[in-house]
């Protein structure tokens, strides 16, 4: 097969590509905002009842007053436009339960969750690297793949409970109840990291296997390049290209896992707030978190695409259909 002659990209192309992607990002955020608004408008249940709680004995007059204050009597179209207008200025509305702006609720809880997920991601990368390096021979590969399967299949909350039972109650390496210190962060982060490490290492190993079977790897070996250099200079780059597309998915896993891990370890954070908001039907908070998740995803996918083009030069010249 004759390779296409390398096409040089026109100078404006990367900028145009980026602008197009940013436009797509706005579209996704708008879509998420609209879907969230629709869902919350269409579902049964009166927000005023939710705000007051089940036991509240409140006159109809007061309820009408609250409804007017929150603008719940306006027609849906007007509320939708107002809502979009507020969003554009960064105003996510006010929590029904906590009586404070949603943005400050999220702002207060975000640091704890970011710490947890950042450390978990670091753990996961280290564990995945160890697993990939450990899988050398036939036998060790089978063992590693079994460990990966177990790590991926164990429910996060259960792993957390087992780690607590062993390292807190049996061995006593970690305190029972402590938050804030780095020491208290280790077990939650490890719990969150295990399934993520399993997925990364599975994909990385598959990518390495595929890459080392390609002709360029054979050529490199024929030129006398050793195993380590082959891995670092050639095959890892191909395997990494596959793993990078996973990043968006992993961030989602980390966010979803944070809800479970923060509950298991009784830690403060965005996951706990999400759970409370879901149970209390605190819709503005739920909507705010959905939007935050959508924006995060859209941004991460953009970064992944940029990284992908950087790792795989073929995508830049446009010779490969994306």
């Amino acid at each position: 097969m004759r390779p296409d002659p390398p096409k040089r990209a026109t100078p404006g192309a990367p900028v145009r590509w980026l602008l197009g992607r940013l436009g797509g990002l706005l579209l996704v955020v708008w879509g998420a905002a609209t879907a969230g608004f629709l869902a919350l408008t269409l579902i049964p249940g009166d927000p005023v009842e939710v705000m007051l709680g089940v036991q509240a004995q409140v006159s109809e007059q007061l309820k009408a007053q609250i409804r007017a204050d929150w603008g719940l009597d306006d027609p849906p179209i007007a509320r939708y436009l107002q809502y979009l207008g507020r969003l554009a200025t960064g105003d996510l509305g006010e929590s029904y339960q906590l009586r404070q702006p949603v943005s400050s609720v999220i702002g207060q809880q975000l640091p704890a969750t970011l710490q947890l997920t950042a450390l978990a991601l670091a753990f996961a990368l280290v564990l995945a690297t160890i697993a990939t390096l450990a899988a050398r021979g036939r036998r060790s590969t089978r063992i590693v793949s079994l460990v990966e399967l177990t790590a991926v299949s164990s429910p996060t909350f259960w792993t957390g409970l087992v780690l607590i039972a062993v390292f807190v109650f049996q061995v006593g390496w970690f305190p029972i109840a402590e938050t804030g210190s780095l020491r208290a962060l280790v077990l939650p982060a490890l719990t969150l990291a295990l399934p993520v490490a399993g997925v990364i290492s599975q994909v990385l190993r598959q990518g390495l296997d595929a890459a080392s079977a390609r002709p360029f790897a054979t050529t490199a070996i024929a030129r006398g390049i050793g195993g380590g250099r082959l891995l670092l200079r050639h095959t890892l780059r191909h395997a990494a290209a596959d793993s990078v597309t996973l990043v968006g998915y992993l961030v989602g896993t980390l966010i979803g896992g944070a809800v479970l891990v923060e509950t298991v370890f009784a830690r403060p954070g965005l996951g706990r707030v999400t759970l409370r908001a879901i149970i209390d039907r605190d819709l503005p908070v739920v909507l705010g978190i959905i939007l935050l998740a959508a924006v995060t995803f859209a941004l991460i996918n953009l970064v992944v695409d940029v990284l992908y083009r950087w790792i795989d030069p073929r995508l830049r010249t446009g010779s490969v259909a994306t």
């Binding site: 968006g248 998915y249 979803g256 908001a277 879901i278 959905i290 996918n301």
Partner: peptide
């Protein structure tokens, strides 16, 4: 691009 658990959580929300 969302993991299933997160989607399920959003639907329950």
């Amino acid at each position: 691009s969302f993991p299933e658990f997160l989607l399920a959580l959003l639907v329950i929300a």
